[in-house]
């Protein structure tokens, strides 16, 4: 974990840096020791998604945890299995390059907070749904789509959720979630572009600050 200091003197934890450095470090160690890469714990994107699904349901069913603890655990699972730095940058799209370094840093951190909060809260409405991995298809050299179904209760039709998984440095990471055809990255891109068009990059960051503040009071 790296600690960096922003222009206003606040110290922020750069978790993106931590992730990349540990990946590099482990890859280097593996290369030196001629060992298999330690991050390749799962053999395939399907196994990776199945494991996340199992862990999420395990957390939701864990009666020893209260709601706040469950949310924290969910956020941790999401954070550690998603390449949030990349997702944040993809969502900002062409505006990434014109943003200042400070804006980039604050944007990524706010994005991470809002996204993990929102997703964890949505998952926490759990009432016993089950999760099934249906199959996968290759999208590019790096990316695979894993298709899953969330089986709901009371005869409601199952929900189709696709996960875009990127393989890098021998590990896997979620880079998009598509529920019933609705891509998280595309939706967020549309929203972010609309806010920037009207209020600029500083307006976006202001809106996100307000949003992440609201998220905390909800918790």
């Amino acid at each position: 974990m790296t600690i960096s200091t922003t222009s206003d003197g606040r110290r922020t934890l750069g978790r993106g840096g931590w992730r990349r450095r540990s990946v590099l470090g482990m890859a280097l160690a593996a290369a030196l020791l001629q060992l298999p890469r330690p991050l390749a714990a799962q053999s395939s994107p399907e196994a990776f998604v199945a494991e996340i699904g199992d862990r999420v349901i395990e957390i939701l069913q864990d009666d020893s945890k209260n709601d706040a603890e469950k949310l924290d655990s969910l956020k941790f699972v999401l954070d550690s299995h998603t390449d949030l730095d990349l997702v944040a940058r993809l969502v900002l799209g062409r505006h990434w390059r014109t943003a200042s370094k400070d804006e980039q840093r604050e944007y990524v951190e706010l994005f991470r907070q809002i996204l993990t909060n929102t997703m964890a809260e949505r998952m926490s409405d759990y009432e016993g749904q089950t999760f099934e991995v249906f199959g996968s298809s290759e999208l590019s050299e790096r990316d695979t789509a894993v298709e899953t179904r969330i089986h709901r209760l009371r005869g409601a039709p199952p929900l189709r959720v696709d996960w875009r998984i990127r393989e890098s440095d021998g590990g896997f990471a979620i880079i998009d979630v598509i529920a019933e055809g609705v891509s998280l990255v595309v939706s967020q891109r549309n929203e972010v572009a609309s806010v920037i068009d009207r209020e600029g990059m500083s307006g976006l960051i202001e809106t996100m600050r307000e949003r992440s503040g609201e998220g905390e009071t909800v918790l």
Binding site: D162, E180, G181, V195, G215
Partner: peptide
């Protein structure tokens, strides 16, 4: 609404994407 920066755009984006997927019928990706 809770997760959105601009609720109007969030609804529009979700509606149009879902609609496109239901018309294409060959998976959303």
């Amino acid at each position: 609404e809770v997760g959105s920066l601009d609720f109007y755009v969030a609804v529009r984006s979700a509606f149009l994407q879902n609609r496109a997927a239901r018309i294409a019928k060959n998976g959303p990706m």
